[in-house]
Amino acid sequence: MKTDGAGTVTTSVALDCAYFDAWRCRSCTLLATPYEAQLAEQQARIEALLPPMRWDPPFASAVGAFRNKAKMAVAGTVDAPTLGILAADGSGIDLQACPLHEQPLVDAMPALEALVREARLVPYDVPSRRGELKHLILTASPDGELALRIVLRSSEALPRVRKHLAVLDDLPLVSVSANLQPEHKAVLEGDEELLLAGAGVLRMRVNGIGLRLRPRGFFQTNTAVAAALYRQATAWIDEAEPASVLDLYCGVGGFALHAARPGRRVAGVEVTAEAIDAARETAAELGADASFAVGDATGVDLEGAGAPELVVVNPPRRGIGELAGRLEASAVRRVVYSSCNPSSLARDLAAMPSLRPTRARVFDMFPHTTHAEVLVELERR
Score class of each variant (00 low, 15 high):
residue 2 K to I: 12
residue 3 T to Q: 07
residue 5 G to L: 07
residue 9 V to Q: 06
residue 19 Y to K: 01
residue 19 Y to N: 05
residue 24 R to Y: 03
residue 24 R to S: 08
residue 28 C to Y: 11
residue 33 T to W: 13
residue 35 Y to Q: 09
residue 37 A to M: 03
residue 38 Q to C: 12
residue 45 R to E: 05
residue 49 L to R: 00
residue 54 R to A: 15
residue 55 W to R: 04
residue 55 W to F: 07
residue 57 P to L: 05
residue 57 P to N: 09
residue 58 P to E: 00
residue 61 S to V: 05
residue 64 G to T: 13
residue 65 A to Y: 12
residue 67 R to D: 04
residue 69 K to E: 09
residue 80 A to Q: 14
residue 80 A to R: 14
residue 84 G to R: 06
residue 88 A to H: 04
residue 89 D to M: 05
residue 94 D to F: 04
residue 104 P to R: 03
residue 104 P to A: 09
residue 106 V to E: 10
residue 113 E to H: 06
residue 115 L to I: 09
residue 122 V to R: 13
residue 122 V to F: 02
residue 131 G to D: 09
residue 134 K to C: 02
residue 134 K to W: 08
residue 135 H to A: 12
residue 147 A to E: 13
residue 148 L to I: 04
residue 153 R to K: 10
residue 161 V to W: 07
residue 161 V to K: 05
residue 165 L to T: 04
residue 169 D to A: 15
residue 169 D to C: 09
residue 171 L to F: 09
residue 179 N to K: 06
residue 179 N to L: 02
residue 179 N to S: 10
residue 184 H to F: 02
residue 187 V to K: 06
residue 189 E to K: 13
residue 190 G to L: 10
residue 198 G to N: 01
residue 199 A to N: 14
residue 201 V to P: 01
residue 202 L to I: 09
residue 203 R to E: 15
residue 208 G to Y: 06
residue 213 L to T: 10
residue 214 R to H: 14
residue 215 P to E: 11
residue 215 P to T: 14
residue 217 G to T: 11
residue 221 T to A: 14
residue 222 N to Q: 05
residue 225 V to S: 10
residue 233 A to V: 13
residue 234 T to M: 07
residue 235 A to R: 15
residue 246 L to Q: 07
residue 253 G to A: 04
residue 255 F to K: 05
residue 258 H to Y: 04
residue 266 V to Y: 05
residue 269 V to E: 10
residue 273 A to P: 08
residue 280 R to F: 01
residue 281 E to R: 03
residue 283 A to C: 01
residue 284 A to M: 07
residue 290 A to T: 01
residue 291 S to F: 00
residue 291 S to T: 08
residue 298 T to W: 04
residue 314 N to G: 03
residue 325 G to K: 08
residue 326 R to E: 00
residue 327 L to R: 12
residue 329 A to F: 10
residue 330 S to G: 08
residue 333 R to M: 13
residue 336 V to G: 07
residue 337 Y to Q: 02
residue 343 S to V: 14
residue 347 R to K: 14
residue 350 A to H: 11
residue 354 S to H: 13
residue 359 R to N: 06
residue 361 R to P: 04
residue 365 M to N: 06
residue 366 F to R: 07
residue 367 P to S: 05
residue 369 T to D: 00
residue 376 V to D: 06
residue 381 R to T: 13
